[in-house]
Design a binder for these strands. Structure first.
Ligand SMILES: [Zn+2]
Ligand SMILES: [Zn+2]
Ligand SMILES: [Zn+2]
Ligand SMILES: [Zn+2]
Lengths: 136, 136
DNA sequence: TCTTGAAGCTATAGTCGCTAGAGAGATTAT
DNA sequence: ATAATCTCTCTAGCGACTATAGCTTCAAGA
């Protein structure tokens, strides 16, 4: 049985975040001591680790709720899980390409060799998107 | 003189967002008609376009405030603007590499060829980060 | 056993950058 | 004149936390 602080240390999830997850119904309300403090089991630790890892991979709270439901039914087919991973992947790829376009523009404007604002490529570009090479 | 709706159409910034920017002090409160409706000038249009483009390139509201201040002083040196662009670029690059690590992991787990949750690589990986190839 | 300091409790509000809705008043076109 | 569309203010909500205040409980050392 761990206190919330120990659970936090073991999972890397901050204490207020653990309480927030409890409120959101992602983790069950754990048993309490006589003095009303939360005490977690190994299962609680596993569940929170699953949540943390899913968050790190970019799943939303709602998606994690679904993933937790899936993982509780080992005999079920895993198509749904595959679909969710595929959606996540597609989203990550969209973001990457958007950021890469930004990267190109920022590199371009960072190459400004003017000395005053009046001629600065950074300021000029911000004022006029048609100076950009790509859409964003 | 444009109404807020016309300003919105011309800049692509939604009406509530324009009012929000006014409240945040990014744009000055414009003149009003007798009936209390906002009327914008060409200058207002320019300023909002600058803001929109800066947002698209990823600058925060606070950074945009600084950039607008800079652009109002054409005779000043532009080092500050360069520094801000460089910080933005570095941040974009950090995000890209983080997303690329996620992309690799998501591609890996999406290659699951199991049929049930019990053996599904997606669920297994979420439960255990040590199955990952990279940090994230 | 007592004391002290760390840890935990609840409840509320704040973060960022918007976005949505209600209910009223203004403007424009026919 | 009337109807359709716009605009007004104000308030609340989004997601995923994070911070603060004021209190109570726990655990370890004297
Ligand atoms: Zn410059
Ligand atoms: Zn641009
Ligand atoms: Zn699978
Ligand atoms: Zn991992």
């Amino acid at each position: 049985m761990f206190s919330i602080g120990e659970l936090s240390r073991r999972t890397g999830v901050k204490i207020p975040t653990i309480r927030y997850y409890e409120q959101m119904g992602l983790i069950a309300a754990p048993d309490r001591t006589e003095g009303n403090q939360r005490r977690y089991s190994k299962d609680g630790l596993k569940r929170l680790s699953f949540i943390r890892h899913s968050r790190e991979l970019g799943f939303s709270i709602d998606e994690i709720r679904e993933l937790l439901d899936l993982s509780a039914h080992p005999e079920q087919p895993c198509n749904d899980a595959h679909q969710m991973a595929a959606r996540r992947l597609a989203d990550v790829q969209r973001r990457i390409s958007r950021l890469q376009r930004l990267e190109r523009e920022l590199e371009r404007i960072s190459a400004c060799d003017a000395h005053t604002i009046a001629d600065c490529a950074v300021i000029e570009t911000l004022a006029d998107h048609s100076l950009c090479e790509t859409e964003h």
